[in-house]
Nucleic acid binder design. Structure first.
Length: 707
DNA sequence: CTAGGGTTAG
């Protein structure tokens, strides 16, 4: 029996390489071969030693053969690592270019990085092409989602094996075109386990669990990977009981099975079960332990997370990143920063996690600092910054970041576009939004649901709800967010009837409305005075659709009744306290009392608002105004005092406008603004124009020129 | 050259 001890003298790679060289020199080639073949870990020196050992003993053919093998090994190592420059240098020095393996490795390396021209050059230059060469080119196209070219290439292939077919299926799965994937899967002459697993994962990733299950049951041969794929399918579908049963029925389990199962428990919040499973796992690896940490992180149980973290002997980047993300999500940025500083092997994810953390903590200055300092950035770094500005209400900064990104020659992706559109929506920046729409059409991201839904909201909030409708009708596979966005868009623009009709269409199509849908429809009813309709819909919501009403729904109802002058019923709804009292609820009541000039009700609503939001200055102003209207000046004074006690400084209203190529920002009552009198007169003009239904958001801005 | 697990953006 062979010993596998680590510390034993003479068994490390270095010493064995030396031994091979010595044996070779003294003519003991058979002993050298024996050592070489027994070595479990070999490096390039090992191969070189063996090559010279063969050469010195006259076995030139063996030497050449092994030498080529060693070249091939090094080149494929580089290409698999994506280090194409180094691979190419070796490839150019290659003494014997007859063998196709190195060519294929180079082609695969270039093609996978999307460098099709380089790949093609080698492909057409190579002396003898085989199927692997063709498949390597094909993999380049399919792995990058270039299915048009990929399919064309596939058609040109004189000969195809199961790998070629699998690549096509995988490509379609990656771009989410399951119908095409299925079409090709069925055409595979002799599908193997890989084909079946690829298709199964495709169904699983797209929530088509029944089809995944059918496929699994039909599989002629199953290996661990097949079982793991089915397990992952149940986990993704949150069917934890089925996952547990499958896990117990599995004929064989490897580290991936255990990790998947632990992750399954984590996904449904069963952390104790996950912990027990980790405890039972025969050989705990980092992936499983990290899954556990991730579970604790999601429940903000950082003490237990760090307990697992501390148990890990050799920690890799991923588990560090998970811990940092955990502290960041808990708003504990000091600790996140501490760990980050401790890391010696930071990768892009580590940096991006810090950006996201600071952004979520509202510290965009810090996020920007990290972004500026980091050496390399990827698309996620940019998107995290843009999303951060967006979340903090800094919409203009978000757009500026978008611009800067394009100036640096980076291509925006689905996430960038949907964030950019969201910024436009919040600014009602129609023209910038339209420019983005053009870019999206050119970039091919029109079919992305995140993007389409963001387009709907952008148009709706910019007052072009019929453009929103066009976008909606163009989507092939609408989801609940699409429906909700358009309904909310109708509501916002005062199209109550259309909102209700869209809900009806949704029901006919068999799509189940959710809480958000009804917030949209009810607010549409209240904005357009569809009182009876709104009340009926609210009843349907609870009784037919079994949707638990939120405070927002009650706020809509109060608004609905209040606007119609049914103040007593509105007040009754609020007093019944069927939901948590929120600012929105009393806000609706206040709105109604202002329309119908009911001072007492207004006073009541505002006082409640003050209780809920004691630090919001506008509430004090509202209450003060009510008393002022009634001439109760002592009360006005009392509220002024109250406000100055509770709020350090009144946040001045701030806005900006772009004229020509300049941004003019101004505060309300800003004496420093040279043309404040003119600025203050603008709203009156605007209000007049608004009555003609023109769009306020037609700002000419420097953004437009650059987009 | 093809399939499965743990971390960051919407």
């Amino acid at each position: 029996m062979r010993l596998r001890s680590f510390g034993e003298m003479g068994t490390n790679v270095f010493n064995q390489n030396l031994k091979i060289t010595q044996l070779g020199k003294s003519g003991r080639i058979e002993e050298a071969i024996k050592i070489f073949s027994q070595m479990t870990k070999k490096n390039t020196v090992t191969y070189n030693s063996m090559v010279s050992a063969y050469a010195k003993n006259g076995r030139i053919r063996d030497a050449r053969h092994l030498d080529l093998f060693s070249w091939t090994l090094m080149i494929t190592c580089y290409t698999r690592n994506g280090e194409l420059q180094k691979a190419r240098e070796l490839f150019n020095l290659l003494p014997d270019k007859q063998d196709s393996v190195c060519w294929n490795a180079m082609i695969a390396g270039y093609a996978k990085k999307g460098l099709y021209e380089e790949a093609k050059k080698l492909f057409y230059e190579m002396p003898v092409k085989n199927l692997v060469s063709w498949n390597s080119m094909l993999a380049g196209y399919t792995k990058n989602g270039e299915m048009h070219i990929g399919l064309q290439f596939f058609e040109e292939m004189a000969e195809r094996d199961v790998v070629s077919w699998n690549l096509i299926v995988d490509g379609f799965v990656e771009v989410g075109d399951l119908d095409s994937a299925w079409k090709f899967f069925k055409k595979i002459p002799e599908p193997n386990v890989v084909s079946w697993v690829t298709m199964l994962c495709g169904f699983a990733r797209n929530g088509r669990i029944v089809e995944a299950q059918d496929l699994f049951e039909q599989m002629p041969i199953r290996n661990v990977v097949s079982w793991n794929a089915m397990l992952a399918a149940y986990v993704q579908d949150s069917q934890i009981d089925r996952a547990v049963r499958l896990f117990s029925e599995m004929p064989e389990r490897d580290a991936v099975s255990w990790t998947t199962m632990i992750n399954g428990y984590v996904c449904v919040g069963k952390l104790d079960e996950a912990r027990q499973l980790l405890h039972r796992m025969p050989y705990k690896n980092i992936a499983a332990q990290t899954a556990m940490i991730s579970g604790y992180v999601q429940s903000k149980r950082m003490d237990e997370a760090s307990q697992i973290f501390n148990q890990i002997g050799t920690r890799d980047v991923v588990c560090w990143n998970t811990m940092i993300a955990g502290y960041a999500q808990c708003g504990r940025m000091a600790e996140a920063q501490f760990l980050f500083n401790l890391m010696t092997n930071k990768d892009l994810v580590s940096w991006n996690t810090m950006i996201t953390g600071y952004a979520q903590a509202g510290q965009m200055d810090k996020a920007l600092e990290i972004f500026d300092v980091m050496g390399k950035r990827n698309i996620v770094s940019w998107n995290s910054m843009i999303a951060g500005f967006l979340q903090n209400g800094l919409y203009l900064d978000a757009l500026k970041m978008f611009l800067m990104m394009r100036k640096e020659g980076r291509r925006p992706d689905q996430s960038t576009f949907s964030c950019g559109l969201s910024a436009c929506a919040n600014l009602a920046a129609l023209q910038v939004g339209e420019q983005l729409h053009h870019l999206i059409l050119k970039s091919g991201y029109v079919n992305d649901l995140f993007v389409s839904n963001a387009l709907i909201t952008m148009y709706a909030k910019s007052g072009r709800v019929f453009n929103a409708e066009l976008v909606f009708r163009d989507i092939g596979n609408v989801d609940i967010v699409s429906w909700n966005s358009l309904i909310a868009g109708y509501a916002l623009n005062g199209y109550g009837k259309e909102a209700v009709e869209l809900l009806e269409e949704m029901l006919i199509e068999g799509v189940a409305p959710d809480q958000v849908t009804f917030v949209g429809v009810l607010s549409a009813c209240s904005h357009t005075g569809l009182v009876a309709q709104g009340l009926k819909l609210f009843k349907n919501m609870t009784q037919i659709h079994k949707i638990e009403p939120l405070p927002e729904h009650y706020a809509c109802l109060v608004d609905l009744l209040g606007r119609a002058g049914r103040l007593e019923e509105a007040l009754k709804l609020v007093l019944e306290k069927k939901v948590k009292a929120t600012a929105g609820l009393y806000g609706a009541l206040l709105g109604a009392s202002r329309i119908h000039r009911n001072l007492e009700l207004g006073k009541y609503a505002t006082e409640k608002l003050l209780e809920l939001e004691p630090h919001k200055a506008s509430n004090y102003v509202l209450l003060s105004n009510i008393h002022a209207e009634a001439g109760r000046w002592s009360e006005v004074e009392r509220i002024r005092v109250l406000m100055s006690e509770r709020i350090a400084a009144k946040q001045p209203g701030c806005s900006w406008i772009e004229l020509g190529n300049q941004v003019h920002s101004f505060l309300s009552d800003d004496a420093a603004q040279p043309r404040i009198a003119e600025v203050c007169s603008i709203p009156k003009t605007l209000t007049a124009e608004l009555n003609c239904r023109t769009c306020v958001s037609d700002m000419k801005s420097s953004l437009l020129d650059i987009l």
